[in-house]
Design a protein around this nucleic acid. Structure first.
Length: 578
RNA sequence: GCGCCCGUAGCUCAACCGGAUAGAGCAACGGCCUUCUAAGCCGUAGGUUCCAGGUUCGAGUCCUGGCGGGCGCGCCA
């Protein structure tokens, strides 16, 4: 509908020009938006305000002029110039009839658009290291990323989701080391667990499984492991890893690595699936090394003259592309850095033909953006193809107290615990109710409440209430055939409010996709639920006669459909009863 | 020190590319169940949008400088 109005305005401008009442203006941007208050019509445009300057005329007069030249439309009842020069449009009943029909015809597709026009977009999110379970911080990224993919798809983008598994490199070595030491303990060795390794209970579980399956096959005397360790904690860990690799057979080492990461990846997948988050693809970091993609990338940068050696390491001249400092790709000990494989990964994403890459990262990774963009530029691509959405941390509160979190020490609330405690729907809705860059207080007490305080139930309740009305009608064997229903009978204030809201939905989805802001959908369905509850309390549906009842049923059925569509985009269930 | 994010009602948060009188929920106060789910509704009260300048028809939104909070600034990921 906004496009219709936009077109009417453009036609008016054209005829103003042809009659010599308006000079030609190169290009201009104007808005056509649904109004916040119905006193200002259903839709308003600032076109006269925008053009007034260039036309050197009074905006209010220009608005009147534009109105005079508007072509006829069956959708416009009347127009007015208002305020400083806005043009307000008031819809005819024709519009409401059309909206209801459209919802009835489109059903689960109502709200979809083509603004993405098949653009290939890759959304990468969570991508947590398989070195421990997901915690509530990952939950926010998961809820946001999944909703974003759904919203983009609804807006016509060819959006795909991907999880990058860091199954190569140092972190996985540390994981293997942690498991092996616990395993040695299980074999009867008494070992002082070194600093900086993974401490969580899940490490014991993996070690126990290893021993169950392989017996003492990986047992080696551990005294060599701790020989001549340096003082620095990182160097100490690197030495421990080196020692472990020389003590263990190749087979044992890779067995422990693989077992650890595969168990953890499986757990992560399960956690996410139960949270309603599925990925189109799980992309292995290790595969970049095995396939030679990493070496190819280094070759390209080498060929471009953007690499140099210093202190035994291989550096990428990222400062030539706007980064603060140059970055190491290959460490002096010969190992690739995480950054190196990540650059290869981004090269691969672009090679796969995605026009836009959206990465969802925790806010602590913001300093990483410049170097990845620098690498993309150095590889001869456009760094603006990469968009990074930073998700701020969620701080958990319980009983008014902040719950501290620390990953390394193993003391954190896992996503699974959150889900068991508050449920999938409440968890996802509360996460996605905040725009990602906003710092967030996650109130566990509130999330747990199955009451009016919890916004997710407010929306779901509206959906269930509507279903219940139809359920009752069916039980009483009353007519619910809406084919002959007449939307023109809907004239109550609450009915018009609902119709206005329903009409807005496609634009909300489009806007939400354009800005990567699924929270707009969450707020919209909250508002829609409010409109419905107000209606429900003001007017009867069952205890009212024939045609009017059918008209009202028509309206609430459409409302139910839109609530369901919106909830679906957020990955939240639309229950039929509560 | 440098960089990024945030600062809006007592609390948690919205505000569509800069638009008209800054909105919800919770908390507070007053009402509504012999009628379809009260997990609901109606009403009252609550604001120097952190501060100071600037840009313009118009600023919570953009720019500059402060203040406050969070996070970065590794041959970690």
């Amino acid at each position: 509908m906004l496009e219709e109005i936009r077109s009417l305005l453009q036609q008016s401008i054209k005829s103003l020009r042809e009659s010599g009442k308006l000079d030609h203006i190169e290009s201009f941007i104007f808005t056509v938006d649904y109004t916040r208050e119905k006193e200002r019509g259903d839709v308003a445009s600032n076109i006269a305000l925008v053009l007034a300057n260039a036309a050197r005329s009074n905006p209010r007069e220009l608005a009147e002029n534009i109105i005079q030249h508007l072509p006829f439309s069956p959708f416009i009842d009347r127009t007015e110039a208002a305020g400083p020069g806005f043009i307000n449009f008031f819809f005819t009943r024709e519009v409401w009839t059309r909206v209801i029909e459209e919802i009835r015809n489109s059903k689960q597709d109502y709200g979809k658009s083509k603004i993405g026009a098949g653009q290939k977009v890759l959304v990468e999110f969570v991508s947590s290291n398989p070195t421990g379970p997901l915690h509530v911080g990952h939950g926010r990224g998961a809820a946001y990323g999944d909703a974003l993919v759904r919203v983009l798809q609804a807006a016509g983008y060819d959006a795909q989701s991907e999880y990058y598994i860091n199954d190569a490199g140092r972190q996985i070595d540390i994981l293997a080391l942690s498991i092996w030491i616990r395993y040695l303990e299980l074999c009867g060795d008494s070992i002082a667990f070194p600093e900086g390794l993974y401490l969580g209970d899940y490490i014991f579980d993996i070690a126990a499984q290893l021993r169950r399956e392989d017996g003492n096959a990986h047992y080696q005397v551990s005294s060599d492991l701790f020989e001549s360790l340096p003082g620095d904690i990182d160097e100490k860990i690197d030495t421990l890893i080196k020692n472990m690799k020389s003590i263990l057979s190749e087979g044992s080492f890779s067995r422990i690595r693989m077992l650890g990461s595969s168990i953890l990846v499986t757990d992560i997948k399960k956690d996410l699936t139960e949270f309603g988050v599925e990925f189109d693809r799980w992309y292995s970091e290790k595969s970049l090394i095995d396939s030679g993609a990493l070496d190819r990338m280094v070759g390209v940068l080498q060929g471009a003259g953007q690499l140099y050696k210093k202190d035994g390491a291989q550096w990428f001249r990222s400062t030539a592309f706007g980064d603060d400092k140059d970055r190491v790709l290959i460490r002096a000990n010969g190992n690739y850095t995480y950054f190196a494989t990540d650059v290869a990964y981004h090269m691969d994403k672009l090679d796969r033909g995605f026009s836009k890459l959206i990465n969802i990262w925790g806010a602590d990774h913001h300093g990483y953006i410049a170097r990845v963009k620098a690498a993309i530029a150095a590889l001869g691509k456009d760094p603006d193809q990469l968009a990074v959405a930073l998700v701020q941390f969620a701080v958990l509160y319980q009983g008014g107290e902040k719950i501290g979190m620390s990953t390394r020490s193993g003391a954190f609330v896992t996503l699974q615990e959150l889900r068991h405690k508050v449920g999938r729907d409440a968890g996802r809705f509360l996460y996605v109710l905040r725009k990602p860059e906003q710092h967030m207080d996650f109130d566990l007490d509130l999330a747990v409440k199955q009451s009016k305080d919890n916004p997710v139930y407010y929306v779901q309740y509206a959906h269930a209430r509507i279903c219940s009305v139809f359920q009752q009608l069916q039980e009483r064997d009353m007519n619910i055939n809406l084919h002959s229903a007449d939307a023109d009978l809907l004239t109550e204030i609450q009915e018009l409010e609902l119709l206005r809201s329903l009409a807005r939905y496609p634009e909300v989805v489009a806007q939400s996709a354009r800005n990567y802001e699924p929270h707009q959908v969450a707020y919209y369905i909250k508002d829609l639920a409010t409109d419905f509850h107000a209606y429900y309390n003001a007017h009867p549906f069952i205890a009212v006669k024939g045609p009017l009842r059918l008209a009202r049923l028509l309206l609430i059925d459409a409302t139910r459909q839109v609530l369901a569509n919106g909830l679906k985009l957020l990955g939240v269930a639309a229950p039929e009863r509560m």
